[in-house]
């Protein structure tokens, strides 16, 4: 189980998405990134994910990466995942996805 330590004492580590996958488009891509991020979260890190070199993202990728994190630990786990080196389009897509995810899980909990 991932430990939610106070943010002030958090260790931080960075991963570069393209070290794990060439694209951010498939479920398989998402699983690889999920595994890497999940391991760091389990070790108590806040994880910075660099999207440098990534030009497009799909919901399949996000389902397997962010969706799985939220399924396993709840939406708040995302306070410990930050994104850097992204385009405005990727930022909008991520925000929209998380909004969908959040309304999806709140509807399921009703």
């Amino acid at each position: 189980m991932i430990n939610f330590a106070p943010r002030t004492t958090m260790k931080t580590d960075k991963i570069i998405l393209t070290d794990f996958t060439h694209t951010a488009l498939s479920n398989a891509d998402g699983v690889m990134v999920y595994t890497a991020v999940n391991n760091l979260l389990a070790d108590g890190y806040t994880v910075i994910v660099s999207f440098s070199g990534i030009n497009a993202v799909s919901t399949s990728f996000l389902n397997s990466f962010i969706g799985n994190l939220v399924d396993n630990y709840g939406l708040n786990i995302l306070t410990r995942v930050k994104i850097v080196d992204y385009t405005a389009s990727i930022a909008n897509f991520l925000k929209n996805y998380i909004q969908q995810l959040s309304s999806f899980s709140s509807r399921n909990n009703e």
């Binding site: 995302l78 306070t79 995942v81 994104i83 080196d85 385009t87 389009s89 991520l94 998380i98």
Partner: peptide, 14 residues
């Protein structure tokens, strides 16, 4: 089509 620029500041997901 929007302009392409890479942003480096940290993006909070929530």
């Amino acid at each position: 089509l929007p302009k392409k620029e890479e942003l480096s500041d940290e993006l909070d997901l929530i």
